[in-house]
Design a protein around this nucleic acid. Structure first.
Lengths: 156, 156
DNA sequence: TTGGTAATGGTAATCATTTTCATTTAAAGG
DNA sequence: CCTTTAAATGAAAATGATTACCATTACCAA
């Protein structure tokens, strides 16, 4: 049984009354094919050969629209570029390990059960204590990746 | 016994061969007195009456220098401004709850024992698996604060 | 007190992101 | 298939945070 590729994001756009345009298809295809956490310019560069007529403005607009509709997730790792990633069951909840030197990002999603429980527990307490309505959390680790550790050793 | 106020940051600067200058004193005093997580412009505005001759450039330079020396910590909550906070025993390790609407930031340092143990465990696992050298982690919660929840209800 | 050097401050530059506006296009209806 | 029309697009200019440059100033060791 062939599984039909359902482009969920097309439905989401239609649901909200947005048009399925050629630039939108092209931009989303980058996320479907490449994965990772590209920023606006990286999407732009990736498209520059295939679709040189898509402007950076449209990329920004499309990315923000998709974030609003939950099609993409937006991350800020503190390197001055907003980064985006397609939302789906597989990538839905995970954390990051970020190299402070070269900005490489690794993601992982094999949480310990203990972790999930602890986060829930903390979240409940915080909601009560501060009257917040907590929607999401970020648990990211920062450090040095293997390559940057090696480079550092060499230069010493 | 009077406890002499030891300005740790003066020592840190001297240790590294940096000078104790009037602008640096003034800028650091903002963090000692106000606390919170001001960004560069907020520091600048706070000083505009007291010390109108300190340039925004110097603020940026001083903040980054202090981050390099560990005198300040730098945060990025994704609202487009880097925010800074003085480092000391009291504020050393904590987490944030950030309102996605108004960008208010609450910090908390409860639940650290449980957290410490779990984080250590996760950290070890990740270091082995990905050959990373993990230096720090961020556990922040995002959602809506009481005021923004109320406002939202009113407007419905 | 003074000389050397780091620090400063104003201005201009940079870089990511947004806004503006004239032109193009998706998609609904005939 | 062919209009119609509002939404979408792209180019260029605007914005806003941060950084670079450079001439001037101010620590601080001698």
């Amino acid at each position: 049984m062939r599984r039909k590729r359902i482009r969920n994001w097309e439905n989401r756009l239609k649901e909200e009354g947005y048009k399925i345009t050629s630039p939108r298809k092209t931009i989303l295809s980058v996320f479907e094919q490449l994965g990772g956490h590209p920023n606006a310019r990286e999407v732009f560069n990736d498209l520059s050969s295939r679709s040189p007529d898509i402007g950076l403005t449209t990329i920004y607009r499309t990315l923000e629209l998709c974030v609003r509709l939950g099609i993409l997730k937006k991350y800020d790792f503190g390197d001055g570029h907003s980064r985006y990633e397609i939302t789906n069951e597989k990538t839905d909840h995970h954390h990051h390990i970020i190299c402070e030197k070269c900005s490489k990002v690794i993601e992982y999603r094999d949480f310990l059960d203990e972790e999930t429980m602890l986060i829930k527990k903390i979240q409940n307490k915080l909601e009560k204590k501060f009257h917040f309505e907590i929607k999401q959390h970020v648990l990211d680790f920062y450090g040095l990746c293997k390559e940057c550790i090696d480079k550092k050793k060499e230069s010493e």
